[in-house]
Design a protein around this nucleic acid. Sequence first.
DNA 1: AATAAAGTTTAGGTAAATCTAAATAAAAGG
DNA 2: CCTTTTATTTAGATTTACCTAAACTTTATT
Lengths: 221, 221
Amino acid sequence: MMNLSIAEENYIKSIYKLEEEGQEAVSTNALAGELDTKPASVTDMAKKLKEKKLIEYEKYQGINLTAEGKKAALSIIRRHRLWECFLVDKLLFSWEEVHELAEELEHVRSEKMTNRLSEFLGNPQIDPHGDPIPDAQGKMGKPRAQTPLHKAKSKRLEVVAVSDKSTALLEFLNAKGIRLGTQIDVIERYEFDNSIELKIRNQPAFTISEQVSKNIMVKPI
Amino acid sequence: MMNLSIAEENYIKSIYKLEEEGQEAVSTNALAGELDTKPASVTDMAKKLKEKKLIEYEKYQGINLTAEGKKAALSIIRRHRLWECFLVDKLLFSWEEVHELAEELEHVRSEKMTNRLSEFLGNPQIDPHGDPIPDAQGKMGKPRAQTPLHKAKSKRLEVVAVSDKSTALLEFLNAKGIRLGTQIDVIERYEFDNSIELKIRNQPAFTISEQVSKNIMVKPI
DNA sequence: AATAAAGTTTAGGTAAATCTAAATAAAAGG
DNA sequence: CCTTTTATTTAGATTTACCTAAACTTTATT
């Protein structure tokens, strides 16, 4: 596999993420937003990654990963998620602390180390935020059937993942007692602002904004 | 503590190493050799590190770490050696494989993570090559009394550290059955090329070059 | 002490990854 | 369908960490 700089790896990862989120072709602007950089920088990098055959790219037509690009992305994501598992399971970090650290650890590229790490952790299938971990061949266990809470139909739900990994959201969820596996009862949906009133276990009901419910992935039980 | 780039961290680490090896003031050339770069680049970086008050430096007079520079160095070395322990103890790498990987892992700068890693490993005092690990306050357990094998006087010795961490040397030592704690009997010293004939346990005697014996640190038993 | 050799610095340049400002293309709205 | 808005690209700078070649110090040698 090609040797990618850290910057290149970050671009590949972000393109993969935006494709996953449903963008047919990833736009320069969207990518700049995701990477917190400027559109002009994205255009520059797009040319380079096209040169390396990691993306398909035509002026003004957006970006898509090639098969090789996808492979690279999955390898980076694998490393990222395994390190998150390590930080939570072994170093006892809580789930809101690990994303930033894993952003750095993921760039240490050694297949041998990655595979040993996986083994050491018991070959985990999902990371602390509920996301599936690609295997050594780059095959990603398809996520369990899941819907963002704001679109879920049932009243009884279980939290299976969180799509926003920002410290802010995860700390909020901690405070509310929401984690992976938590069972939620939807009490009321307010059309006005799309907020949702819900209840978990024996605690008093509380309300969350659409902003939050969009990022909680659930499945019915 | 200041925010250092990876390049800056590597310079600091190398300066520390050369100072330890006895250089009163570290020369531009020596540092260029250590970092596998060119003297002109060292001069450039020296100016920057002086600006940041991490080194003392005057044109043509060589380089020394300031107190702050020393602190930074010890923090990097702590991370490096803890990761080496992790790789050997937990991921079951052998001692010749871990130096390069730790060179990358060491640049992930998080005190919290470093301290948790240390705890997770049982607060080890020495790394897989026998070098002491600085504690969270940057205090380095002074190495046990040790001499390079080529200067040792006694006939019965124990290996306490290896100063060259190159894969080549460590693989050679593996092949010969020399590791930390190994007991060595010196059979003969040949003045001609300063090679040493030695014997370990029940194995047949063999000879090592001065190049090798210089890098094996021993203590008498 | 003069000169040669070795070590170090300066000057000027390059590549990667950014940026701003200006130019250009695509999309959206009347 | 023409114009305005939005998105994207180009051009030209900047920063970091390098480099080479030439100039300059220091040290060693006659």
